[in-house]
């Protein structure tokens, strides 16, 4: 899919204000990917919030999280009309695609989302993240591959999602006992950035 116009449409009066929704199955790393974005914002000196929503089960249920990044203090941390929607499975697509603001952007893992996008007022980027993860010995890293795609498409607009900031964010998000995973995450992000 080709890039149409600027990736992150500005909303409201604030110089920068993004409401991001990430959704998928529990266990796909949806909440983790949200944390990485949140820390990118934090490291860039923005106001940020991260709010998870999931069922009582720890794995396999639906999971989504709301991330707000803004120059102004954040009011409601719950994202109901995302500027940016990162979608990792079919049920989440059905549930949230219509909530994306007109002019918003959607990133889709087309391995797991087979639905067609009928909306014409949003920019859609679609990559086979899960398949890429399987092919490249990056199992469980489809979240980072999809984020990599997002970082690539956003790099022009803001420094916030440059590789340097992203690395800093990963260092904050990965527990100190699992630092070896930072490298794997970066490999997955780089792969996504090439797509």
């Amino acid at each position: 899919m080709q890039k149409k116009e600027k990736v992150l449409p500005h909303g409201g009066d604030a110089p920068y204000k993004k409401e991001i929704l990430l959704a998928g199955f529990g266990g796909q790393g949806v909440l983790f990917a949200g944390k990485v974005l949140t820390y990118c914002g934090l490291l860039a000196g923005k106001e940020v919030s991260w709010l998870p929503s999931y069922g009582p089960e720890m794995r396999g249920g639906t999971a989504n999280c709301s991330v707000c990044i803004s120059d102004d203090p954040i009011g409601s941390p719950l994202v109901t009309k995302p500027d940016l929607f990162i979608c990792m499975n079919g049920p989440s697509f059905d549930k949230f695609i219509d909530s994306v603001v007109p002019g918003g952007t959607v990133f889709i893992d087309e391995t797991l989302v087979t639905q067609e996008v009928s909306r014409t007022d949003v920019t859609v980027y679609s990559i086979p993240a899960a398949a890429l993860a399987a092919e490249n010995n990056l199992s469980g890293m489809s979240n980072m591959i999809l984020l990599g795609k997002f970082f690539k498409e956003s790099a022009e607009e803001t420094e916030m999602f440059s590789m340097e900031t992203v690395k800093g964010a990963l260092e904050k998000c990965v527990p100190s006992t699992k630092t070896h995973l930072i490298e794997v995450n970066i490999r997955a992000i780089e792969l996504g950035r090439k797509k």
Binding site: K35, T38, L42, E47, V48, S49, W50, L51, P52, I74, P77, L78
Partner: peptide, 9 residues
């Protein structure tokens, strides 16, 4: 539950 589970600086 919103404040209990959200992350903010």
């Amino acid at each position: 539950g919103m404040l209990g589970q959200m992350m903010e600086p």
